[in-house]
Structures are given as structure tokens and as C-alpha cells.
Design a protein around this nucleic acid. Structure first.
Lengths: 163, 163
DNA sequence: CATGAAATTGGGTAAAT
DNA sequence: ATTTACCCAATTTCATG
């Protein structure tokens, strides 16, 4: 299978849709990407090279964004998870707001429909570091108010599931 | 291997704290866990076996929770991301509420401090599937109201950073 | 299924405790 | 003197044509 001149990955990928076998492979890899291709194939009723070929294709096409180590937040001194809603004047996503991505504590930035315009997921060491970050937010022009939800317990947290 | 006296730290089960080398390794692996130990070692100024040894230890101790394939949501037909706040009567986290984890669309469940008691991150194919899920939520005893924030654009979404 | 690359194991050494 | 972390070399396992 050769595909030479295609590296454009717009909204419509150049590849075909996922079939049941692809989804079975993803199901395994989402849970544990350290398995050998032999075992991966076995769990998906495939030969090792066939499994490898499909995984390679899914990486190339962007179905698999990346394979990454998922870290325990407490181990890296980030036990405090918060969700911060931001009210903005005018359109929320300014370059200034985007710039807070440089804080490693900021894990997600979304624009949302509803009574606020932006939603951030932030993981800090403690309330003091959170407060510092919030004060940085208020320095940004256009930020009018924030509402913060501190997470008491996380009962479920998992990556995008294929099924 | 003998273990005579327990020097177990309280919140951190078995092992010692992370040093700068560990954090350098994590920095690489969080971004790309497919690198060989040779390259990993090179990027962290370590030999391949030394890198391997430290990574193995971090896996064992739970610093690295898992290494997983991260999937493009659109590719698995989940283009609609929402955050759902739930008001509950009494304590929010009931077994019934926990049971919605069985829906693969539900990615996160947190209890929060603030004017609502639970917060869910949900990724569905469309508004119809979201509505179905919300109706399932309302069937759960104790669920009084929900407020849903539909994500228009995601500007940043990344796993827990070591730095 | 063969070949080359990578993961993994063991031995020996230096620094730290 | 014991522990800890490292590198080098050898072996096994795996990826990949």
C-alpha cells in the first residue's frame, strides 16, 4: 500500500473509515500501548504483521494522535484539579488568553456555548498556585469574571474511547 | 531481596521522590512514548538500560499510570464535546450515578465544590446522543437539574504535564 | 520466515550513605 | 560495608521486509 503525495490532513482524511477490526485494535491500544504486535494481533484476531500494518496506517492518518505516557498527577505534585469558567467581553479567544497555555498547569482550553464563554481545566499544586494563575487570568484584557469549581474527588477519568 | 524495616512514605506508597532525570524522562514520554530506550536515554543523558530501569520503576510505582494510544475524537465519531454540571439532592455520588461510567461517551466524573455537585465530561456523536444520555441522567434518583456547556472549539487539550 | 533492531538481563564499577 | 545507579556487553525478543 503506497500513498505518495498525500500529507494533507484536512477535515476529510484521505483514508477510509474504521472497521470493526480497527476498533478492536484501538480498544487494546487505548488501554495499553506497550503490548507487542504479536499480542495485539492475538487479541484482535489478526496476525502480527497485519496488526502492525493497520496501526501504522492509523498513525499516519491521524486516527491515533500519539501514544503517550499518562502520569499520576499526585506524583508530579498536582493534586488540585479545577475547572474555571471565564466570562469575557467580546470574543473570548484572544492571543493573550491563548498565551496561558504556556503554564503547564493548564490542560484544556475550550470555548463553550452557555452562560460563560471559556472553560479551562487546570491542575495545580495547591490553592495558592491556583490563585496565582487566576490572577494572571484577570490581567488579560477582556476577562470580566471567573467561576471556579474545585474538584473534590475524581471518580472517572479516561481518554477518548473507540467504542 | 530483603526488606527489613519499612521506610514507606505515607501518601507515596513505595518509592522515593522524582529527581530531575526522572522528570526529563517523563517529559519525553508524555510527548511520545514510542521512542526506543536508546533514544530516550540519549535525550535524557542516560544509557539505554539506565533509562529503561528508571522507566520500569516509575511504572511499578504508579508514577506512570499507563501508556496509551490517544485517539482523534472525530475519527471515532465523537465530534461533540460537552461538560455537564449536575445538581443533586443529598450526596451526589451514588452507585446509580457511578453506573453511567458504562457509557463510553462519559470520559470524566468529578465531584466539585461550588454551586453544583457533580461535573461530567461527555463526548458524543451529536446532540441527539447527548440528549439521550442526559435523559438517562435524569432517571437517576437524586439528580435534580443539569446545566450543559457545549464546546464550540477546543484550543488546548493535553495530558498531565510533568513540569 | 529471515534479518536487523530493539528490549532485556547480568556483570562489574564508581559514588553515596 | 552496604546500597544505589550506572555503563558495557551479551542474549533474547521483537519489528518488519
Amino acid at each position: 500500500m503506497k500513498r505518495k503525495t498525500d500529507e494533507v490532513k484536512q477535515s476529510t482524511p484521505t483514508e477510509r473509515a474504521l472497521d470493526a477490526t480497527d476498533r478492536r485494535l484501538l480498544g487494546v491500544l487505548v488501554d495499553d500501548a506497550t503490548v507487542s504486535y504479536a499480542e495485539l494481533g492475538e487479541r484482535a484476531a489478526l496476525s502480527a504483521p497485519a496488526a502492525h500494518e493497520r496501526v501504522k496506517r492509523m498513525r499516519r492518518s491521524g486516527v491515533i494522535r500519539k501514544t503517550a505516557a499518562l502520569i499520576d498527577p499526585d506524583s508530579v505534585k498536582k493534586p488540585l484539579l479545577s475547572f474555571v469558567h471565564i466570562d469575557t467581553k467580546g470574543w473570548g479567544m484572544t492571543p493573550d488568553l491563548m498565551a496561558i497555555s504556556s503554564h503547564h498547569e493548564v490542560e484544556e482550553i475550550h470555548s463553550v456555548a452557555g452562560d460563560t464563554s471559556m472553560l479551562l481545566k487546570i491542575r495545580t499544586e495547591n490553592t495558592r498556585t491556583l490563585e496565582t494563575l487566576l490572577s494572571d487570568l484577570f490581567k488579560i484584557s477582556g476577562v470580566e469574571a471567573t467561576r471556579t469549581y474545585i474538584v473534590l474527588s475524581t471518580y472517572l477519568e479516561r481518554p477518548v474511547q473507540p467504542g
